[in-house]
Every structure is written in structure tokens, then in C-alpha cells.
């Protein structure tokens, strides 16, 4: 019973956080996309022999 009483479902906070979910995912994809473009640029411009 103590377990149940220490629970509080906060629907308002949940709904508010959904926008954070959207913004967060959008933000990470934007940053990652920029990094991906940088990687393509780096590997496209520099073609000296690697140590692979």
C-alpha cells in the first residue's frame, strides 16, 4: 500500500514532456546530420593513405 501511495501519476507533466521528446529527437538528428555532412566532406576532400 505504501508503494501505491508513493506513486503519483502526473498526466500534465507527461503531456508537457512530449514536446521535449519531439524537440530532443529533432535536435539530435539535426546535430548528427551536420556531423554526417562533415564526415562526407572530410573523407571526400582528404584522400591521403590511411593506416587501415
Amino acid at each position: 500500500m505504501e508503494f501505491l501511495s508513493s506513486f503519483k501519476i502526473d498526466l500534465d507533466a507527461f503531456l508537457e514532456s512530449l514536446s521535449m521528446m519531439g524537440i530532443g529527437m529533432l535536435g539530435i538528428f539535426v546535430v548528427i546530420a551536420v556531423i554526417m555532412i562533415c564526415m562526407y566532406a572530410l573523407t571526400g576532400i582528404f584522400k591521403d593513405k590511411g593506416d587501415n
Partner: peptide, 15 residues
């Protein structure tokens, strides 16, 4: 990394 942001919402749901 979707799980991070999804869990943030779930954690807020649980107060």
C-alpha cells in the same frame, strides 16, 4: 537514442 527521450516522458508520468 529514442529510448532516452521516451523514458523522460515516462518518468515524468510517474511523478
Amino acid at each position: 537514442q529514442f529510448g532516452i527521450f521516451f523514458t523522460l516522458s515516462m518518468a515524468r508520468l510517474f511523478g
